[in-house]
Amino acid sequence: MSKKIVISTDLNGDITEFIADERDSLLDALRERIGLTGVKEGCNNGNCGACAVLLDGILVNSCCVMAAEVDGGSVTTVEGIALENELHPVQQAFLNEAALQCGICTPGFLVAAKALLDTNPEPTEEEIRFWLAGNLCRCTGYDKIITAVQEASKSMQKK
């Protein structure tokens, strides 16, 4: 029987304490222990990006981070990117551009796109494609996702 550990982290802006198994990945802990099931499991292997979150502001695949590693840190998931009662511009752009079909990869794309726009507010198409190459989408062919990130970039410039 493996050990249980207590972890304290800033989760989507609030200090959160939870108990995890020492073998839990951050993905396991977010989904199974805390119930933030917006973070999706696609491959559990770091290849698809569906579980992307920000850890201390850096984009990571939460399946490849141990839960214990986030003690004392900060984690932002898809549930935490909206601005109070308003969707984040990238969320709104995904809706406007029909950039999701089944929607399972969407949380990972949104977190990754937010991370891109946070550091590079006006990315080129090439930069968007390169940045998002770690997120797999099987439904859309990516076209509308790229367009949505371009639209989000424009709408954030206006603000």
């Binding site: 898809v78 809706l95 399972i104």
Partner: peptide, 21 residues
């Protein structure tokens, strides 16, 4: 138009099979 299930899907609220607890 925006799809009816859109907001749930961009906020992580939509419940997929594995999300059941």
């Amino acid at each position: 138009p925006v799809r009816p299930d859109g907001v749930d899907k961009v906020t992580g609220r939509a419940k997929y099979g594995a999300d059941i607890q």
